[in-house]
């Protein structure tokens, strides 16, 4: 008996250790990220880091203003949301409410394949195909703009948004929909007055996770947004080159000497990025929980 007990306990603790790995990894990651990021502020005031408008890491004296990079990330993400949210929700509604099983059996796996394409492939496609199209149709000085990045990121965020909103929409109880139909409303009225509002929190969670996906994406934006560290106007900034926080880290980490201010500045950007995505995930979780409670 005791043997069996030991075995149970042994396996349990083994699985506990495996579960703890994720937590420990996150914890260590935080420590290293913040430790190296904070070191910047012994040399460079935190106020200037957060509010200065210039990013010249290799100049003498160096300027580490994160504002243009932060706003660059924000504008690209907003663009991606504007592009992908309506489209994603429309697809989710179609798949779960309107499409015949035959069609939805094809559509669902295909949208999920989108998520499996490597980001560098998206980037290459964007650089070679989308950049010239944007430049020529809008007659811009260059096609490497925030808009180009937004469209690419929008496409990349679509699978997340579609599959989570589709889950939310199809989990709306049949009784709700049938009640609405029985009262004489049309299919469309049922969708936009009953089904979608009932699954709204699930859809919001999908949108938040889509944003999280977009803001953390690196390779694609680096290849198509032009990477100029300027503060973007809104909405005019959509049609000009911008540089995101992720692209800055990827572009500059190669050159940077270990332990220099520039090195710490890149870690500080990483910390800001981490905090941003952390907040977004917490909001998404909160919204998702509320939605479970309501049903």
């Amino acid at each position: 008996m005791s043997n069996r007990y030991l075995k149970e306990k042994g396996i349990e603790s083994l699985l506990f250790a495996s579960g703890a790995v994720a937590v420990i990894a996150l914890f260590l990651l935080c420590i290293f990220l913040f430790r190296d990021g904070i070191l910047l502020f012994s040399e460079y005031p935190i106020n200037s880091f957060l509010t200065a408008t210039k990013w010249y890491p290799t100049a003498e004296p160096a300027h580490f203003g994160i504002l243009p990079l932060f706003l660059g990330s924000v504008i690209v993400t907003i663009g991606a949301v504007i592009f992908s949210v309506p489209l994603g929700i429309a697809v989710a509604i179609y798949i779960s409410e309107l499409a015949s099983p035959k069609i939805s059996n094809v559509l669902k796996p295909v949208t999920e394949i989108l998520a499996g394409i490597p980001s560098v492939v998206y980037g290459f496609f964007g650089l070679v195909i989308l950049v010239p199209i944007i430049q020529n149709t809008l007659e811009l000085p260059t096609g490497q703009t925030a808009l180009t990045g937004s469209i690419m990121l929008g496409i990349m965020a679509l699978p997340t948004i579609i599959s989570i909103s589709e889950d939310a929409i199809s989990s709306v109880p049949r009784t709700l929909k049938e009640g609405s139909l029985a009262l004489g409303s049309t299919k469309w009225q049922t969708i936009y007055k009953v089904t979608v509002p009932a699954s709204l929190s699930g859809i919001s969670a999908a949108v938040m996770l889509g944003i999280g996906r977009a803001i953390g994406e690196t390779m694609t934006v680096m290849m198509v947004t032009g990477n100029s560290a300027v503060i973007p106007g809104f909405p005019s900034g959509l049609f000009a080159p911008v540089r995101t926080m992720t692209a800055t880290i990827a572009l500059e980490m190669g050159e940077v000497p270990q332990g220099s201010d520039h090195f710490h500045a890149l870690f500080a950007i990483g910390s800001v990025l981490f905090i941003t995505t952390f907040i977004i995930n917490i909001i998404a979780n909160y919204v998702k929980k509320r939605y479970r409670f309501n049903l």
Partner: peptide
């Protein structure tokens, strides 16, 4: 002097050639 802030920054020489080949003002 410093490089202008709004200059496009390309991660590789190939990307510079690609952009200039398709952009009359570059």
């Amino acid at each position: 002097d410093q490089y202008r802030q709004d200059a496009l920054v390309q991660p590789a020489t190939g990307a510079i050639v690609q952009e200039i080949a398709q952009n009359k003002g570059a």
